[in-house]
Every structure is written in C-alpha cells, then in structure tokens.
Amino acid sequence: MRALRRDLSIYLSIFGMTPKVFMAYQLWFWIGLVLNTIGMAILVFFWRAVYADTDSVAALSLQQTLTYILLAQIFFPLTDVDLIFDFGFNLREGNIIHFLLRPINFQGMYYVQNLSSLMMRLILQIPIAVVATLLFGLQWPTDPATWGAFAVSALLGFTALFFFHWFLACLTFYTTEVWGLGVLIFGMSLFLSGSLVPLTMMPGWLQTVVLSIPFAQAIAVPVSLLTGITPLIQAPLVWLTQLAWVTGMWLVSALFFRVAVRKVTVQGG
C-alpha cells in the first residue's frame, strides 16, 4: 500500500511536469494553430468538392463526413505517443541505463507521462476546435451517452496504441535512424488511424487491413462512436474488442522490450 502511494506520488509529479514543458513553446503554439487550420481547410474543401454532385457517399452525408473528419482532426493527439524520439534520444545519450536503474516501473512511468501529454495536447486543441466550429461548421454531438462511450473507447484505444508504440520504439535499440522511423510511423498512422477517410468508405478488404492494425483503435473506432456512425448500442462490444487489443499489445510490447533491453545490456548498446 505504502509502495503504491509512493509510486502514485511519483507518477503525479511526472504528470505535473509536462504542462511546464509545453508552455516553453508559445510561438510553436500559435503557428501550430495556423498549420492545423491549413490542414483542416484542405480536408474541408476537398470533401466539399467530393460532395459537389452527390448527396451521399457510402451512405454518409456531407455533414456527417465533415463532422467525422473534423473530430478526427481535433482528437488526432490520441495517436501522439512520444516514445520513439524519447527512446532514441535516451539511447543515444546513454541515459537508458539510468532509467532501467530507477526503482520504478519503466513502462508505467512512460504511460503516465504520455497520458499527461495527451491531456495537455487535447487542451491545446481547443483553439483549433473553435476554428473548426466557426470556420468549417463543425456540429458537435450533444448526447452525453455518446460522449461517455467515446471517452472510454478513446482511453482504451490510446492505451492500446501506447503499447504498440512501445513495441515500435524498441526498434530504436536496433537502428540509429530515429527521425526516419518516427516519420514512417506518423505517415502510416495518418491513413491507418482513419483520420483522412471514414472507414465505411473503404472497400471491405481494406477495412479489414486497417482494423487489424492498432492505429484505428485510437481514432476511427472512438470517433465513429462519437459521430453515431457506429450505433451506441454496440459500444460494449467495441470496448471489449479494444480491451483485447490492450491486453495483446501489452504482452507483445513487454516481451519485445525484454529482448531489446537484453541486447543493450549484453552488447553495451
């Protein structure tokens, strides 16, 4: 019990550190808003052009699609896990050994840190949410039940993705090209998370592929619940599937981590 309380207090202080780091980048914040607006504008105009001659695409109206796309953009931080650059940096600087020596669960520490970053990033998305509402006519879902279902699903999806990223970050034990690896994963997550196109528009086989890679769990699955593309009645089933994802990814990541760490400790990095 005491140990748990100690761990919690450590986690809490890690949780509190992240906002301070963010505040150091004010210029980036404002410019990030403009960049997000550009990205959003392109998507909106693109979709408006798609719907120029038709009222529905794959049974979705323009408004439904836009709501999905805009919410997916706003909640895109759900796919942001910093592990790869963190691992890469700490490996290069030789810090990884310090982390392994600390008397705290390494993975737990990182999870809390990333969860804190996620909260901060979502708060920082408020301005772009305002832009989406005022400029691009985003209509927010109002049913508290959908929001609740979404929140649970988002947290589960983020957690599954965290473990998946943990697995990918272990690759930095084998390659020194961290930047490229990060871009590669970001590039894949753009499409595979379902942030660019609603999954229902994809051909069946592609849906299967996308749903068998964890990225979709963090965006497409929760945002489909939120926008009503997935009926609320299916929420428990969705959660169960996501829970299976979390468990599976957790096992895989822990296993790979042990192998990768052995490589560092045996061969000295």
């Binding site: 490229g180 871009v183 590669l184 590039g187 894949m188 499409f191 660019l196």
Partner: peptide, 8 residues
C-alpha cells in the same frame, strides 16, 4: 518514411 507519408 516519405513514401509512407505520401502513400497515406
């Protein structure tokens, strides 16, 4: 990495 970004 750049190919993946474009492919998306």
């Amino acid at each position: 990495s750049t190919i993946a970004l474009q492919a998306s």
